[in-house]
Amino acid sequence: MSMTQTVEDALKKPFGTVYADKMAVARYKDGVWTPFDIQEVKPFEMHPAAHVFHYSSTCFEGLKCHRQVDGSVHVFRLDRHIERFRNSAERLCLPIPDADQVDAMVCELVAECADWAPVFPGSLYVRPTLIGTLPSIGAAAGPSTEALLFVILSPVGDYFSGGLRPLKLLVEEKMRTAPTLGMVKTGGNYAAALYATRKAREKYGTDQVLFAPDGFIQETGAANFLMISEDRIVTKALDPSFLHGVTRDSLLKIGARMGKEIEEREISVDELLTWAKTGECALSGTAAVLGGVGSLVYREETYTVGTGDYGDETAKMRSALVDIQRGKAEDTFGWLKRIS
């Protein structure tokens, strides 16, 4: 079977379930990082007392490489993702990876696996991961002084495989994350949202839960939240309680260039429901880019957002970002780094 056929077959599988055959690996022990090497993807051997299993010392990143219209492969905003990755490590008291080493691990791995990068609308999803490996079940109040850093790759299709469709959200007025860990890309934050998301799906048929602690919009379990109109984008101001999305940042910069006024501030549920009568709402993230919201469930009532369809302004912004990523539009922001 040819590599082209292998990648095409991978795109038919659920998002993020097929992997390139190589990964980059480095370890931290005795106060230093080892040089990384690129090896065959295979299971790790780890002590059952490893810190990560008991005290959730883990963080990761999710970014994408895109095959351009000329056939070259570029990684999108690698520097910003590395910055966030290092911040997550610091917040979790894990050994902080060297930025240049993470950059090299991603770039060299992608270069060796460039054939795994599909053509548009597919992309090559990149997952750098850091875990604490110190074998100690007595270190609940102490950090892991040993760590494993690895990067894996997954060829993925468009997140919305059935085409863009309006999403349905449940507005939940409860805190999802610890205030100091919300900005950390760690599995615990996703686990914290899983139960509420599953129950909302069973009861209301919703796609995600929009958390609004104390009546103010925060984020969903897996994405940032934006309110969009012809002349404005309104979103929650950055603070430690939620993830500082790279896609969010990219869309705000694109929106400003399109002439939209950018407002980063607190948004009450009452304001959201008023906005929904005429405006658009969307979820932003690396996997889906920008998902339009068609309806909201709040206190047992359902509210239509705009026309109830995937909004026109939302579609324009998504296209503007995707066009940069795939090389169809000029990258005036300097976000793309050529790998091969």
Rank of each mutant, 00 (worst) to 15 (best):
1 M>F: 09
8 E>H: 04
26 A>G: 12
29 K>F: 13
34 T>G: 15
35 P>W: 09
37 D>L: 07
41 V>K: 09
43 P>F: 07
46 M>V: 12
47 H>M: 11
52 V>M: 12
53 F>C: 04
71 G>H: 12
73 V>A: 14
73 V>G: 14
74 H>D: 12
86 R>K: 11
88 S>E: 13
88 S>W: 15
106 V>Q: 06
106 V>L: 09
107 C>F: 05
109 L>V: 05
116 W>A: 03
119 V>L: 12
124 L>P: 04
126 V>A: 08
126 V>E: 07
129 T>I: 04
129 T>V: 07
137 I>C: 08
139 A>T: 10
141 A>D: 08
145 T>Q: 14
151 V>R: 04
154 S>D: 12
158 D>E: 03
166 P>D: 10
167 L>Q: 03
170 L>Y: 00
174 K>A: 12
181 L>S: 04
182 G>H: 11
184 V>G: 02
195 Y>G: 02
202 E>Y: 01
207 D>A: 01
224 N>C: 08
231 D>W: 07
236 K>H: 13
237 A>M: 12
239 D>A: 01
240 P>R: 11
255 G>I: 01
256 A>R: 15
265 R>T: 05
268 S>Q: 02
274 T>E: 02
274 T>H: 01
276 A>L: 09
279 G>R: 04
287 A>H: 10
287 A>V: 10
289 V>W: 01
291 G>I: 00
293 V>N: 12
299 R>I: 07
301 E>R: 11
304 T>C: 14
311 G>E: 10
319 S>A: 13
324 I>Q: 00
332 T>F: 06
338 R>V: 00
